[in-house]
């Protein structure tokens, strides 16, 4: 195990990872991560607009994890295991700009709806995204987390690139959802 510390360090260096966290996200941890990103960006990124967009995307992605990370118990599983809300977040420097990578467990039953919304957002040009946002903002509907489905649209607007995503089946009830958001100048 001890040999693998350097391997892990080396890998993080090669991938230019600015920050990486795996575990259960609390509101306090989200604050700490946002604070860290803001400090790092203040040194590394001269373009204020890019700094703000990265901060916005990291914030929305973390809050998505906070609100939506969920593990549906499978038959015979201990309740304690089902309570864990393991997620992963990484922020990396890319050739041009930044990558915000997140991953979390979710119910298989909700995959179709999420995929539909991701594809809808990815099929939009910037002005269409803006219309979609205004429509979702003005429709008077609140979701459990309060955003009314605005999160992904906002992430796509700030990113200005297509959202990259994937699903990996975990067990009979759960899927691992991965999202890569590129933020470029």
């Amino acid at each position: 195990m001890v040999d693998r510390i350097f391997d892990l360090y080396d890998e993080l260096e090669k991938q230019r990872i600015m920050l990486s966290f795996k575990g259960d996200l609390s509101a306090e941890l989200i604050s700490a991560i946002l604070n860290l990103i803001e400090q790092k960006m203040a040194h590394s990124e001269p373009d204020q607009k890019v700094r703000k967009r990265v901060f916005n995307v990291v914030m929305e992605c973390l809050q998505n994890l906070y609100h939506h990370n969920k593990h549906v118990p499978i038959p015979g599983e201990e309740a304690a295991r089902a309570e864990e809300r393991q997620g992963i977040v990484m922020v990396a420097q890319a050739n041009s700009g930044y990558s915000v990578l997140t991953g979390n467990s979710m119910a298989i039953s909700e995959v179709e709806d999420l995929k539909r919304r991701l594809d809808e957002v990815n099929g939009c040009e910037p002005e269409q995204l803006r219309d979609l946002y205004k429509h979702a903002l003005g429709d008077g509907r609140f979701t459990r987390s309060g955003g009314g489905g605005l999160g992904l649209i906002d992430i796509a607007r700030k990113s200005r690139r297509k959202l990259e995503y994937g699903f990996v089946p975990l067990d009979s009830n759960n899927t691992f959802f991965s999202l890569n958001v590129n933020v470029t100048p």
């Binding site: 703000k52 916005n56 914030m59 929305e60 903002l137 309060g146 955003g147 009314g148």
Partner: peptide, 12 residues
């Protein structure tokens, strides 16, 4: 300076 999408409906 910043607001999240969870705030945006409340501001509306």
């Amino acid at each position: 300076e910043y607001f999240n999408t969870s705030s945006s409906k409340c501001i509306l």
